[in-house]
């Protein structure tokens, strides 16, 4: 039916992604505002058994096709394009993850549709849809309005609590056939599993995580020393991995690991949404940053607005002193 709110239900290697529930929670609010049904759109191959998990939606539009067995961009885009064209939803909410994000490039281009990125919220206002978008690494928020429909919104993970997007009863399922040619230009070959690092950062109770503020590889020794004093390990944000200062296995965030340690100590990490995605659920977050406006302070429990090169040695020394006095 035209005008519905749609959520792209993301699956990753056979499981419904957690962020799908966050989007369903947001979608349910938006659908209520607009007075229209919320539908989940599930694409894949042999994924019908997952539909009972999407009960926050009134119904599920299911497309099952062998070409959708792996997250290959072109078949996903073509399948969605056919659905959107035929059904004319008011909007489609898409998770801004590395799995789903790319359809927000090709799909709006193919159908000439509006597409707003980096959204943390979407509301109905004045007959339009209004999104709040986090730009510039989370430092500025844009309010963006979209009047044309269907409209696409890329939703940042963490927009709503996932618990609010879980439903109890199994939704109605409508299976829709699509025409998909065999991929000719871009072919999925295989997954490349992460190389096991020396340390599994997802298993650590304490992570000392460094960002751009660490400035160079030699300074990592400071973080290593602090991590040793705390009995934890060192991890990093994207810029540190891109520079080759830490191996890929130590990356926290969208492309890397999602971690939930007892303590996440963020040193010189600004806290862009891509990073927050991987550490937001840590039990205790402490951030050290020279920029009082750094987005990391919005999600940290405790913060120190100071130079990490002043704080880290003082902290390491203090921890060692307290441990030594306790041992004595």
């Amino acid at each position: 039916m035209a005008g519905n709110v749609w959520v792209l239900a993301e699956t990753w290697r056979g499981q419904v992604s957690e962020t799908t529930y966050e989007l369903l929670a947001l979608g349910r609010e938006l659908a209520a505002e607009l007075g229209v049904p919320l539908q989940a759109v599930l694409l894949g191959h042999q994924v019908k058994s997952l539909t009972p998990q999407l009960g926050a939606a009134e119904s599920v539009v299911l497309v099952d096709h062998p070409a959708l067995a792996e997250p290959a961009l072109e078949p996903y885009t073509y399948a969605l394009a056919q659905l959107v064209k035929a059904r004319q939803p008011r909007c489609l909410l898409v998770p801004l993850t590395n799995i789903s994000w790319e359809v927000l490039g090709l799909l709006p281009a193919a159908l000439e549709l509006p597409c707003a990125n980096f959204c943390r919220d979407v509301r109905a206002a004045d007959g339009k849809l209004q999104a709040r978008c986090l730009l510039y690494g989370g430092k500025v928020e844009a309010t963006a309005a979209v009047s044309a429909a269907p409209a696409l919104f890329g939703i940042l993970p963490g927009s709503r609590p996932a618990e609010k997007g879980r439903g109890e009863k199994a939704p109605a399922v409508e299976e829709v056939p699509v025409e998909l040619a065999e991929a000719a230009r871009v072919k999925f070959k295989k997954y490349l599993e992460p190389e096991a690092g020396d340390v599994d950062i997802t298993q650590q109770t304490v992570l000392v995580s460094v960002g751009r503020g660490i400035q160079n590889q030699d300074n990592l020794a400071l973080a290593e020393e602090l991590a040793a004093a705390l009995g934890g390990a060192v991890s990093g944000s994207r810029p540190v991995i891109d520079q080759g200062w830490l191996p890929l296995s130590r990356q926290v965030g969208k492309s890397g690991a999602s971690v939930k340690p007892k303590l996440y100590l963020a040193l010189g990490i600004s806290g862009a949404p891509e990073h927050q995605e991987g550490m937001r659920n840590s039990e205790l977050i402490v951030a050290v940053n020279t920029d009082p406006g750094a987005p990391i302070f919005a999600i940290a429990h405790f913060g120190v607005c100071a130079d990490l090169f002043d704080i880290v040695p003082a902290l390491t020394e203090e921890i060692k002193r307290r441990k030594a006095s306790r041992a004595a």
Partner: peptide, 14 residues
């Protein structure tokens, strides 16, 4: 290309 959790995908393109 990158997926999530350190998993990457290999594709063949023309």
């Amino acid at each position: 290309k990158e997926f999530a959790g350190g998993v990457r995908g290999e594709f063949e393109m023309t």
